[in-house]
């Protein structure tokens, strides 16, 4: 196991979080996509760092895949989808939680994840102890983004953040369990994105809007 400057770890973790806050704090779809792209690039870098630290060469493949799929393909697909959608406003006009509050709550969630992770015995693994709280924070913030937004697109972005958190989490804790499972997870997520894109199409066609607030026909009253 190679050693590495703790600063690099900390700084990369901070950039990851900042990129995530970019999604929370902005209201335009393209801004989110850019933030996501940035996040993915940093994630790929982090993956590389983990690969370097653990010395497992498979992780470099994962890093490359991350770089390609997450920072190139998925943003492309989503841009393509949004272009095809004949919807005028591609921004979050009326979120359930105002952006200011959202940022504060996200900050709380970051604190919460650090608080929770303290419980886990990490055997003083610097990589794990740096990135694990960040990954949980990503996960929780992603979830919060989905909860607080009413545009279907932002929910997809939220899913993507969650998924990034997951990726980082599994990576840090397992150091790449086995390629097979890692691939399986990748494939699942990719298919998920494809399916949600199809659904986005259908929603915009059927409801003439990407506002999730319109999807309230199925309820009990």
């Amino acid at each position: 196991m190679e050693t590495i400057q703790p600063d690099i770890l900390t700084i990369s973790a901070a950039i990851l979080l900042i990129a995530t806050f970019g999604v929370v704090a902005r209201r335009g779809f393209l801004d989110w996509l850019n933030a996501y792209r940035l996040q993915s690039v940093v994630l790929a870098g982090v993956t590389g760092i983990v690969g370097y630290v653990t010395g497992i060469w498979e992780i470099y493949i994962a890093a490359a895949l991350t770089l390609v799929i997450k920072s190139v393909i998925i943003p492309k697909v989503l841009t393509y989808v949004t272009r095809r959608l004949e919807i005028e406003f591609k921004m979050e006009t009326n979120p359930y939680v105002s952006l200011r509050t959202a940022v504060i709550i996200s900050a709380f969630l970051v604190a919460l994840s650090y608080f929770l992770i303290q419980q886990i015995p990490l055997k003083s693994d610097p990589v794990a102890s740096t990135y694990l709280p960040v990954s949980v924070a990503l996960f929780l913030i992603g979830l919060f983004v989905i909860v607080s937004r009413r545009a279907a697109l932002s929910q997809v972005v939220g899913l993507l953040i969650i998924e990034n958190g997951l990726f980082l989490f599994t990576l840090v804790l397992t150091h790449g369990v086995s390629l097979l499972i890692e691939m399986g997870i990748f494939a699942d997520i990719l298919v998920g994105i494809v399916i949600s894109s199809i659904l986005l199409f259908r929603i915009s066609q059927t409801f003439d809007s990407l506002d999730i607030g319109k999807l309230e026909n199925l309820r009990d009253d």
């Binding site: 979830l143 999730i212 026909n217």
Partner: peptide, 17 residues
């Protein structure tokens, strides 16, 4: 009690959160 099924996916996820 049954009112918790609001129809909003956001609230559903909030429950999970």
């Amino acid at each position: 009690i049954h009112k918790i099924q609001t129809g909003k996916v956001n609230s559903y996820l909030l429950y999970i959160l």
